[in-house]
Design a protein around this nucleic acid. Structure first.
Lengths: 215, 215
DNA sequence: CCAGCGATGTTACCGGCGGTAACACCGGTA
DNA sequence: TACCGGTGTTACCGCCGGTAACATCGCTGG
């Protein structure tokens, strides 16, 4: 083994450093300084830089470690042999269960608010794009959308990803209902319940038919 | 005028400073330093701090100025007297038109990647929550969702906001189609076309025939 | 036995950042 | 003339990300 890639050779130490970074970031927030992380690991800064290049490298390694499992689970759920509606629910449930099981990690990935030096929050972006790609592909492969399928499947892949991210975010913060209920709510939205629902009486007041009133 | 609130008294200068900040941020990205912004305005740092308190105050003022119009437009669109499906399209079109008209501003609000010291990107978060609240309210008032309406309307408000944000983001970056087409694509998704579409022949069998390619 | 080498570790430093005194000026008003 | 609020400056602090230079250990091979 001539090359002995430094990224794969020193695995145990690297893992140790990542664990330390995890601890301090969960304790102090995503703005934790490299000094603090190094101190948590019992070492000093330059070693961190030797292992991860720079701060973004460390953050990237951290996020990849945390998002890898979730992405794999979502991908598997997208290919589960189920009725389509059931598959939609299964994917939603998989994602929500994933972020529910490690809420602090999820929050640090999505909410870099607490004093973030040099972007940690958008380190989640690559993972989101991966998920969006998975959904895009699943939609393109599994659903007949006619001649404009490529456009629709990609737009929907992005849109659904964003929808679930935002809704899951809110759900995790407020926990207004059990997970299964939330899965239903989102599946219903995706399933056209917005279109199927009856109009509320007070919603259509202005001009139901012909006459157009001045605003 | 006894109080003479400092936030409202020195309006013209404040506007001038905000304009300068706008210019330098659009030129150098969201990581632009306070020094650079001050220099663009032809002054030095302490004046900026006297006007905005700290960096986040400046960013907040900037984002409020940029998002105010968009939020108002979306709110108006949500209450437009149209058929529900038309109203959905109208809201989507309003939002997409808004971000299309000032893409650089939108990008700096949503993509703080380029070296962001102390979070500028999530400064958009309050605006997003406002939009989500508007949608939540519109859904709750306009659509009959049965006994669980409060839960559904809020979950949907968040979800729809996230969906449009993510999809609009992708559309703005790649411009794969005219705006009207994108409006149709998103309205279709919201309208249950995912449920109505026919199954593709190769989708139902459990065999993972056309699975996603490995990254 | 010791030369070499790679990984691990250190101290000390750099430039730049956000943020803050402390001081200076200028125009209106009592 | 004395005051005062707004505008402006220089000079500084502490901290951060990142780097250079040097020290140390444990191994392997001639």
């Amino acid at each position: 083994m001539p090359p002995a890639d430094p990224a794969t050779s020193g695995e145990p130490r690297r893992e140790q450093l990542l664990n330390a970074a995890d601890r301090v970031i969960q304790r102090e927030g995503p703005g934790a300084s490299m000094n603090a992380i190094a101190a948590e690991a019992g070492i000093t800064k330059p070693i961190l830089y030797r292992h991860f290049g720079d701060r973004t490298g460390l953050i990237r390694a951290l996020t990849e470690r945390h998002t890898g499992g979730l992405i794999a689970a979502v991908r598997a759920a997208l290919n589960e042999p189920l009725e389509r509606r059931d598959r939609v629910e299964h994917v939603l449930d998989t994602y929500l269960a994933g972020i529910e099981s490690r809420p602090q990690v999820y929050r640090l990935l999505t909410h870099p608010e607490a004093g973030d030096p040099t972007g940690a929050g958008n380190a989640l972006a690559p993972a989101l794009k991966q998920i969006a790609d998975e959904i895009t592909n699943a939609v393109a492969v599994q659903v007949d959308l006619g001649p404009e399928a490529p456009l629709l499947s990609e737009a929907w892949g992005r849109g659904i990803t964003g929808m679930v991210l935002a809704a899951g975010d809110w759900w995790l913060e407020t926990k207004p209902c059990p997970r299964a209920r939330m899965v239903q709510a989102l599946a219903d939205l995706l399933w056209g319940r917005l279109a199927a629902a009856a109009e509320l009486p007070s919603a259509t007041p202005p001009a139901p038919a012909a006459a157009a009133p001045a605003d």
